[in-house]
Design a protein around this nucleic acid. Sequence first.
DNA 1: CATTGTGAACTCATTCACAGCG
DNA 2: CGCTGTGAATGAGTTCACAATG
Lengths: 213, 213
Amino acid sequence: MPKTAKIPKAAITRLSIYYRQLECLESKGCQMVSSEKLAGLCHVNSAQVRKDLGYFGEFGIRGVGYDVVNLLAQLKNCLALNRNWNIGLVGVGRLGAALLHYQNVSVRGFRCVAAFDNNPALIGKIIPHNLVIRDIKDLCRVVQELNIEIGVITTPPEVAQGVAELFLKAGVNAILNFSPARIRVPDSCLVENIDFTVKLDILTYKISHGIGL
Amino acid sequence: MPKTAKIPKAAITRLSIYYRQLECLESKGCQMVSSEKLAGLCHVNSAQVRKDLGYFGEFGIRGVGYDVVNLLAQLKNCLALNRNWNIGLVGVGRLGAALLHYQNVSVRGFRCVAAFDNNPALIGKIIPHNLVIRDIKDLCRVVQELNIEIGVITTPPEVAQGVAELFLKAGVNAILNFSPARIRVPDSCLVENIDFTVKLDILTYKISHGIGL
DNA sequence: CATTGTGAACTCATTCACAGCG
DNA sequence: CGCTGTGAATGAGTTCACAATG
């Protein structure tokens, strides 16, 4: 029974990390796991694990721990990974192409069902998994046709905002933005940014301030 | 004068974002910026901007705002971007190759000076910017020769831990990990993870819980 | 009796509100 | 007069510590 307590956003991030570690444990044939053990794998406090899980229900057995398979199933529910999600990607440069290869192969219910670009030299090309690169002009139509709910932006930063607005117009209001530009969208639209230059800056900051010895 | 107050880690992340927006403003010829305006560009509270900057000094002019060029120079110092940083990348798959193209071209003082792989078909190949793909076995020697301080992991998750340990042995203790595996390192080593599957999970969670309308 | 689940204590981060100043 | 800089107030998130329990 999902409680109504406020769930920290960081808890969702951790849930996703737990999920992955559990997959890993399952594939190794591990049947039970304690909060202590899972915490170790994810580099967090064990009370944190228990509290995070506690936001969504009581999944453990006192004195024993958590059943790996069961906990996976529960988390799948919590994170809404128990269904398919159709993704559309804009910007088939090297990064975009890398993601298209990666995503389709694997993972969970995420399926990249369309790729777009504005480069005439690319449009019409077939990429892995029988995907054809489409003209960005067709984005709106294709989004509706294929029921795309998540948009991925892997364009140069100059055009990221424009692409975001296309997605919005098409009714997509969840965006994963790989460009370093900060895109501006209404509150009704979700955005997650993946910006590795920020991560590099964090490293240089910490190195030169002697953090981590 | 750098204060000794505790600086939230999130503040560093924001500093990096301010930096980028300021670069953008500078390139548009904008000379002055208020905390209000910068906050708007970065989607944060203006008091937050002032407080974050306040951790490092007094960079503004009361009643006026911040001089864009000066603030950029100050932040460059804070983030230790006023020097070059040599990077070594392991795993020249599609993602690794995409980063090698991207990084060298651009940005700040980050220079990818070496690329490694264990695939004999790749070793010896020349990639952009006259970089040659080296044998992973030579990592330790090359790290010393080229004075590499930051390691980037773009391998499949199964080998990420092993690569991290190679970096450690070579004396690199700042790692940017693009693999979804959680790597285990001593506290003296800094790790930043870039895991887009986590970001996807966050989106699906929020979509299906009606967050953002 | 080992481990979960959780209120309460604590630590960390953000925002407010206004004094200080160019 | 407007905007910065900052102590004080608020809010959020994490950890502790232990009662509950299979």
